[in-house]
Amino acid sequence: MSRYTIALILIFVLAACKNKKDSKQQQTIKPYPVIVIKTQHAVIYSDYPATIQGLQNIEIRPKIDGYVEAIYTDEGATVKKGQLLFRINAPQYEQNVNTAKANIKIAVADVNAAQMQVNKVKPLVDKDIVSAYELEAAVYTLQSKQAALAQAQAALINAQTNLSYTTIYSPANGVVGVLPYKIGSLIGSTTANPLTTVSNISQIYAYFSINEKQGLDFFLSSKGATMQEKLTTLPPVTLVLANGVILPKKGRVETASGLINPQTGALNMRATFDNPDGLVRSGSSALVRIPRTLDNALLVPQKATYQIQGKLFVYVVDANNKVKSVDIGSNASAAGQSFVVQQGIKTGDKIIVDGISNLKEDQLINPRMVNADSVYNSL
């Protein structure tokens, strides 16, 4: 075999080995789904911790001293305005009413007697049988007795008012709180704790705070000349309960305090929600979720991100199909499972949207282009 033939064989063998090596290397480059970032309409949400209070939280306190004779409700019961709640055993007030009624009868008799004396003296004065002084004295006596009668009638009204305090009625529709005093307990107007609390929770107030910067951004982006006008133009807000359930009825932000707390730098706000089923009770905790609309937002799917020390990163694919991690600086979530980009990437950049857990910096990938709309619509 000639040298020329041997050389040709070696060339073919080397070429075959190289092609096999290149093919093997090509097979080791994994494919990844990639989308092209573009601007789009988005709604982002900000959540604020809130405490819940009912429309009314009325403490039921006794106005007189006595013993709890009867309790006509129970803890957690729903009551109507005017419904009987408690009866207090205080017999002295009933006796005061009886005494006042007796005093009125005495005063009426005194008035009648004084009137008879005036009627008796008047014709005698007209006939000059007695002096006018006698009639004047009789009239003064009558006026004194009439005043005593008025005083006795006022005493009866006061006694009846005090007696009415022995029965306590609900001042509003609502839900009964705890009952710290049981039947037989001695209570009075100076008792530390109320008999109970009636909470009207047909509507609820959610109190929450935002910091000074958030407050400025919040209101500068809202329409209206005055603070109240800006509040009325805000979109409806959502209440997220402690178990993650969303209250079916949306509410509105109605008030913002006029002062920023100098210790915390917080601005206190209040949102109002309808609560017809009484699902939410006073004292509950929740989140007030406020939406904000962005017309030209850059969104990345949540599954395309990973987090390091509180920062969000995505993998961007460069022109050589190598990946690079980029901090997108996002702290706001949009509707669905996506984040709004604050920095790091721009329109037209390519990012990997799935399977990023095993990627490394500068890794070479085989990009598989995916329609961005289909990715966002599936979220």
Rank of each mutant, 00 (worst) to 15 (best):
Q343G: 03
S202R: 10
L156Q: 15
I328D: 13
S378E: 07
I129T: 06
L124F: 04
N331W: 09
M369G: 00
D274I: 01
S333W: 09
T161I: 07
Q343T: 14
L231A: 08
L239K: 06
A155P: 07
Y306P: 05
I260H: 01
I88H: 03
M1K: 13
I201F: 00
G76Q: 09
Q214W: 02
N119T: 12
A102F: 13
I106F: 11
Y315C: 12
R281Y: 00
Y207N: 12
N358R: 08
A50Y: 04
S357F: 08
V36I: 13
Q40S: 15
K18T: 13
T28Y: 00
A113W: 03
I204W: 00
A42K: 08
S330N: 11
F12G: 04
N112Y: 07
L149H: 12
R61Q: 07
L135H: 05
A77C: 06
N268W: 00
F208M: 09
R289P: 08
E212K: 14
V317T: 12
G265S: 02
N89M: 08
Y205G: 00
S209P: 01
N112K: 15
I308K: 09
V121N: 10
P49K: 02
D217S: 14
L241Q: 11
L234C: 11
A100S: 12
K80I: 01
N89T: 06
V108R: 14
K324Y: 14
K311S: 10
D47H: 14
L379S: 13
E94K: 14
N57Y: 00
L10K: 05
A266Y: 02
Y315L: 12
V317L: 09
G215V: 05
I106W: 06
Y205F: 05
F208V: 11
Q143H: 13
N377F: 05
S202P: 01
I187S: 03
S2Q: 10
I210G: 09
T51M: 02
L239H: 07
E59A: 14
A206P: 02
A100I: 04
D327Q: 11
Q214D: 15
S185M: 03
I35C: 09
N103G: 14
A154E: 09
G336E: 11
P301A: 05
L163C: 01
V175M: 09
I351R: 08
P194Q: 05
L10T: 12
S209M: 06
V370L: 05
Q25R: 15
K213L: 10
F86T: 02
N193V: 03
V198I: 15
A137V: 15
D110H: 10
D354V: 02
K122D: 08
Y207E: 08
V34D: 10
A242N: 13
L55A: 11
S374W: 04
S333R: 15
S338F: 08
N98P: 01
K63M: 06
Y140I: 11
P31A: 14
K322N: 13
R281T: 10
L142Y: 07
V375T: 04
K38Q: 15
S185E: 04
A113I: 14
C17P: 00
P291L: 09
Q83R: 11
Q228Y: 05
K324S: 15
D126L: 04
